[in-house]
Amino acid sequence: MESLYLLIPVALIFCVVVIRLLLWAIDNGQYDDLDKESWRILADDDFEDDNDDRPDQHA
């Protein structure tokens, strides 16, 4: 049971990381338009491919 002294803090660190990530995503505007995103995931397959082919994508 001593492992709990290690596992619980590890769980907490995960927790903190997840919260940080989520807050970053929110501030990044990724959740600003929930209507569009829910639609986009279904509709957008070939367009993403087009975009990856573009040479200036990483400019």
Partner: peptide, 18 residues
């Protein structure tokens, strides 16, 4: 305000699971 609410909500959600 929307972003603030979302932040609070997500922190509460993750906290609730933990």
């Amino acid at each position: 305000e929307y972003r603030n609410d979302l932040r609070r909500l997500s922190v509460a959600g993750i906290g609730m699971m933990q």
